[in-house]
Every structure is written in C-alpha cells, then in structure tokens.
Design a protein around this nucleic acid. Structure first.
Lengths: 224, 224
DNA sequence: ACTAACTCTGACATGATGTCAGAAGAGACC
DNA sequence: GGTCTCTTCTGACATCATGTCAGAGTTAGT
C-alpha cells in the first residue's frame, strides 16, 4: 500500500537504526497533502502546480520535492488514503458470506458513500493518471484488482446457479468501469449528483445483471 | 460538428470571397492528422509532442500551429472523425422503430465495432481531455448528449412497460460510462481484448437492465 | 556549546510551448 | 518568362513549469 519513494525516505532507511519518529518531516508532508486535498476540492488537477500548491502551504516550491517526486506522486499518496475505504466497503459481498443480494447492496452502498466523500480525489487521480506512467499503472492496477476478485465472486454464484452463465471477467470489467466512470462523473466536480439516485442506478444495473432470478430484485414492470 | 478555429481558418473567412479551394493547406493538415493517428496507434497521448509529431511529417514544428491551436485541438479534430460513426451506429435503437431488443443488439454491435476500430483515438481523447478545458468540455458534452437521448429512449420503453420503472437518467449515465470506460479499457492499447467477449458483456448488462422480461434475453441459469 | 543530521531555500538548467517576422512557394495575369 | 500577391512554411525568440543542487537554517543529542 505504501506508494512513493522519496529522497528522504531512502536516506532515512539507510540511517534507520537511529531516530524513529522524525516528526517535522511528516508534519509538512501532511500540510502538503492537506493543501492538495483542499485545492482539488475546488479546482481540476490540470490547474494544480507545484508553485501554487506550495504557496498555499507557506513553504517554498522546492520543499515539495523533499516529500514527493512530483505532482503525480502526491496523487498517488492521496489515492492511498482512499483505497482502504473502498476495499473495506466492498468486503460484505466479496467475502461471499451471507445473502448475496443483501451483501451486494451493502457493498454498493458503501462504495457510493466513499465515492461521494472522496469524489474530488478520485476524479483528480483519474485525471492525472493518463499523464504519468507510474500513476497510470497504479490506477489501472487498482481497478484491475477489482476485476479479478469481482469475476471470482461472480463465478461462485454461477456455480450456485444464482447467477446466469456467462464469462465473468468481461462483465466484471464492464461493471467496474461503470462504477468508476459513473462515480467520478457524479461526484467528481463541485456540484455533486444526488447520492440516492446514483446508488439506485448502480444497484439496479448490478442486481439485474447478476441476480435476475431473485424476487427481491424483481423488477416491477409497473403493470401486469 | 466542426470543432476548431485556426488562424488560417479565420483569415480565410475574411478573404472568403476569393479563391474557394486552397488545396495545399488541407493537404498538410491531413498529413498531420495521419501522423497523429499513426503515433497514437502505438504510443499514449502523453508521449505525443508537437516536436515529434511534426518530425514524422517532415514539416517544421511551427507549421503545426497554422493548422491546429495545440495538441488538444488535434485531438478534437480526430474525435470529430469518430463521432459520426458512433452516432450513426447507435441509430437503430435510438430511433425507436422495430423490435427494441433486436435493435439494441444491433446498436451495441455497431458501438463495439467502432470502439474496436478507433480504440486508440478514443483512448487518446479521453486521456487528453482532463488536461484541457475545451477538449474536456467537448468530450463530456459528447458523452452527456448520449445520456439525454438514451434516457429518453428508456422512458419510451417504460411507457410501453417493456422496461421496469426507474429514474432513466442516472441509469443512462451509468450505462454510458460503462460503455466508454470499458471500450477504452478493452480496445485502447496495443493488445486489444477479444471483440466478441466485449460485445457479449456489454450486451448482457444492457439487456438485463433494460429488458429483463424479454424471453430472448432470459438468461439461462445453467440448471433447473 | 558543538556537532551531525534533518529540512528548507534560492538559483539554475532543461524542455516543451506558442508567437512572430520574414523567407519560400504557388498561382494568376500580362 | 516575369512579376505580383496571397498562401504556407520556417527559424528564432520569450515564456513557463519542472526538477536538481549546493548551501543556509534548524533541530536535537551529548
């Protein structure tokens, strides 16, 4: 989960036996992260520059490079903060215990919550990713890891005949891109969509795709 | 559909009464577009630079600016080339005539075909968009226009009780983000996914979401 | 108070961008 | 074929953000 390596990180490792808690470094690092979060709450990533970021912290521009390799390194760190919440929220369904439908609903609710809370970060990361090799790899790996475990989870329910037969991997990919794209579109900018609408839509698609037999899911056709 | 304005465009308008077909301009413009397409077939947008692009054409770097405002302008032009095909391919279902399920299958097939053919362009545009105000607006408007017409189309079939009742707009958004994200992921880089797998997955999600009652769609649960 | 490591800073080199004035080229007209 | 005019291309330039580096300032241990 740790992401970046920084000069001072490497140096500190070399001398690691010594002092264990060099507080000042972590302190300004946090200040930078805070400034980044604040900035991205109101502006798109393309307007973020090392200059204006550090202006907001009171430190010099070059101080930035003691804590991050570049702006994409900063984004990687911000993403790490969010990753955990997403993985955790997805557990109910992914773990495979309990009622599939109910636990999927639970997981999707958690996912939408995280998206709603950290929308600007997710948007910024996905905006920043295409301009950097490394960040792009991190971001795609993150999404890709979900593809694998979602596909596995689908396969389970196919064995139990709860889910129709189909190649799980491409469907998992499709559903995951939907989540990412839709959440970022809905919660990525200043005017966020209504959380319940988003949840309802995502839930409908997942449920009708994976559990079309389930009577809870079904799908009142308004007449007949 | 016309996108960019270029110095020579504006100039040409001012002097428009005069000569009507100055061929040389359009010719080198095409050469640049060709070089761009070729480059993006093999490299990500972030590696595209006015310098290396024009090196491939044999013209000077500054010649580029007679034909496009910047690299994002080039991307806008490349996108315009693809837009038409997508809109056209989507017609069968969007028009609302004929069997909904069959025409949706037709439209999705066409969409996947376009995605497969122009994957690298779509990927490049979506990569380039976040770093430019204008291109981002064009790209999001493009996607957004589909949200509107897809939502309208869904509403129609809800009136005919072919589709379950739900708020069409968010579901349309979700499905469209899925298409965009999944197609770009599948066909955006050098190693493309299998076209049929992609089509099967997209089709399954759309059909189970929109036409869960249809017996054609259903959804063999492999046993019982 | 002294030393050593840690942290920050100003100055610099680099690389891509977009502009501009003028050179080269192409076509029309005599 | 020569000249004129408009079009297209080019080299040189200014700008801007980046990332590096050597050294100044700061902190803490002894």
């Amino acid at each position: 989960m740790m992401s970046e390596e920084t000069k001072s990180d490497r140096v500190r490792e070399q001398v690691a036996e010594r002092a264990a808690a060099p507080s000042k470094a972590a302190q300004t690092r946090s200040a930078i992260l805070d400034a980044g979060r604040a900035f991205l709450e109101r502006h798109p990533f393309r307007e973020l520059t090392v200059g204006n970021l550090m202006a907001a912290t009171g430190y010099s521009r070059s101080a930035f490079y003691q804590h991050f390799n570049d702006l994409h390194g900063l984004m990687e760190a911000l993403l790490d903060e969010v990753k955990g919440g997403i993985v955790e929220g997805a557990q109910p369904w992914l773990s495979g215990d309990g009622d599939p439908v109910a636990s999927l609903q639970e997981s999707l609710t958690a996912l939408v919550d995280v998206g709603h809370e950290h929308g600007s970060i997710l948007r910024a990361v996905s905006d920043a990713a295409p301009s950097d090799d490394r960040l792009e790899h991190v971001w795609h790996s993150f999404l890709g890891s979900f593809d694998v475990i979602v596909a596995a989870r689908i396969a389970e329910d196919q064995e139990r005949a709860l889910t129709p037969e189909f190649d799980p991997m491409p469907v998992a990919r499709a559903l995951n891109r939907m989540d990412a794209g839709f959440l970022i579109q809905a919660f990525g900018s200043v005017e966020k969509s209504d959380k319940d609408d988003v949840l309802a839509a995502i839930m409908r698609v997942w449920l009708s795709t994976l559990y079309p037999f389930d009577p809870t899911v079904s799908i009142d056709g308004r007449e007949h």
